[in-house]
Design a protein around this nucleic acid. Structure first.
Length: 431
RNA sequence: GCCGCCUUAGCUCAGCCCGGUAGAGCACUCGGCUGUUAACCGAGGGGUCGUGGGUUCGAAUCCCACAGGCGGCGCCA
């Protein structure tokens, strides 16, 4: 298309009475009124009402053009800004000339359609204001994260999707046929990040992880975006401080940059979390949960109902520290004062629950081998990972955050599948 | 993997308990309307009631199986 000067809707709304505008975008809604037609014109920046009056059109005849003004048709228009209290937002465009760029068939997205219908039509639902707002906030959260990593001199590395060994012995991996060999889709880049710290020291990655669990919850996807970091010489305390500073700054950035989007989601009262974040031990968490009448004992995992107890009573993110060894994967560093505990923590967001997990990794070769055996795993599966402890091993720590869970928390939506453009769940790989 | 609910017009649902072969709203088509905000008013077209089997003179309706979807648990980020 020839390059032309068009206004963005957001800028058109700043102009005064009588100023000329050229706009292009999509018809969000249309209302015919005899010789008068209203369209809500939408572009990537917002919506504005355009009035098309029979006598004002210079380029085509009115009856001919309104036939093709269906929802989601793409159009370019020229007109004049008019201040009018009857228009949404107080301003509208009186149209002088209109051109249909692309006609639209009967648009399937309407009020009152079901959740599964919207998921089947996600490729079209994506253009609705609500989805746009969520994804813009997601975008700024990720931008905020990258800015923080850049300011703090981290190295961004990209890790493989095809892998051979599991990070968490237990979690279910997607199996793929790799030219006749068995391979899997990655569930975490942690081991690769650990390899990268020997040289880069502070590294991070933002890429998808895959879990072949048929989870039917509002917080699980089979393909989710995983923000992971690993830091040489860092302790468990250091890594919590890093998680806190990162999370605070990425949320603050999104809140500052997306005022309009938060307003649209009716979430203007959401603020960047207060600091410092809460730090409580696993044992303290158990006491709180017991206090609510739950029967839970040392060594038990914190289940969904128990997680809610904690999530609903915190006013800012909270670390739950020092999980028992029996609840954690083999690579976690034992607590120096209590060998049954680990130097690890889950990070909970208010009302949401777990959004990140981090901790200190075992850097001693013999201890790591011992833990592999205790977990009935085969050391041969972890040869290259063990190698990292053979050549200048250093204490180190890292964490992983679930991007969609953070988006869900920040935007207040009630399912992670709306926190990503094209969600993948156990029974959805389309569109 | 387990538990619960749902599946009837393009979409959202009513009808099912107490069996007699279907109805509303929205969308669509046509007509009307110069101030609508999910516009409105009038008319019209549109359904082998998820699939298979069973009971019955007769099944959307009762029974069984299967499939798909949604919600929750487990698992986790």
């Amino acid at each position: 298309m020839q390059k032309q000067e068009f206004h963005k809707v957001i800028n058109a709304l700043k102009l005064g009475e009588g100023e000329k505008v050229k706009l292009r975008g999509w018809i969000d809604n249309v209302r015919h009124q005899g010789g008068l037609t209203f369209i809500d014109l939408r572009d990537s920046s917002g919506k504005i009402q355009v009035t098309i009056k029979k006598q004002n059109l210079t380029n085509v005849n009115y009856e001919e053009i309104i036939k093709n003004l269906s929802r989601e048709a793409s159009v370019s228009i020229e007109g004049i800004i008019k201040v009018d209290p009857r228009a949404p937002g107080g301003k509208e465009v009186t149209c002088n000339s209109i051109q249909i760029i692309g006609k639209s068939e009967e648009y399937p997205i309407r009020k009152g359609v079901s959740v599964s219908y919207l998921l089947d039509h996600r490729h079209l639902y994506l253009r609705r204001e609500k989805m746009q707002a969520i994804l813009k906030i997601r975008n700024k959260l990720l931008e905020g994260a990258r800015r923080w990593f850049l300011e703090n001199e981290y190295f961004e590395i990209q890790c493989p999707t095809f892998i051979t060994a599991s990070v968490e012995g237990g979690a279910t991996l997607f199996k793929v046929d790799y030219f006749g060999r068995k391979a899997y889709l990655t569930q975490s880049s942690q081991f690769y990040l650990e390899a990268a710290i020997f040289g880069f020291e502070k590294v991070f990655t933002i890429q998808p992880s895959f879990r072949a669990e048929k989870s039917r919850t509002r917080k699980h996807l089979t393909e989710f975006w995983h923000l992971e970091a690993e830091v040489a010489f860092a302790t468990h305390d250091d890594i919590m401080e890093i998680e806190e500073d990162l999370l605070y700054n990425m949320v603050k950035y999104a809140v500052d940059e997306c005022k309009k989007e938060f307003e649209l989601l009716k979430r203007s009262n959401f603020e960047a979390p207060k600091r410092p974040f809460i730090r409580m031990t696993y044992l303290e968490a158990l006491e709180i949960i017991k206090g609510k009448g739950f029967d839970i004992k040392f060594g038990d995992d914190i289940g969904a109902d128990e997680e809610k107890v904690i999530a609903n009573q915190i006013d800012r993110p909270a670390f739950i520290m020092y999980f028992p060894k029996v609840t954690r994967a083999f690579y976690h560093q034992p607590h120096p004062e209590d060998n049954s505990l680990t130097l690890s923590s889950d990070l909970y967001a208010p009302t949401q629950g777990e959004i990140a997990t981090g901790g200190q990794r075992i850097h001693d070769l013999n201890l790591l081998l011992k833990r592999i055996e205790e977990n009935n795993l085969n050391p041969k599966d972890y040869e290259w990972y063990l190698d990292l402890r053979r050549y200048g091993s250093v204490p180190h720590a890292g964490f992983g955050m679930g991007i969609e869970r953070i988006v869900k928390w920040v935007t207040g939506i009630n399912h992670v599948r709306d926190a990503i453009a094209f969600p993948r769940t156990s029974n959805r790989v389309y569109p």
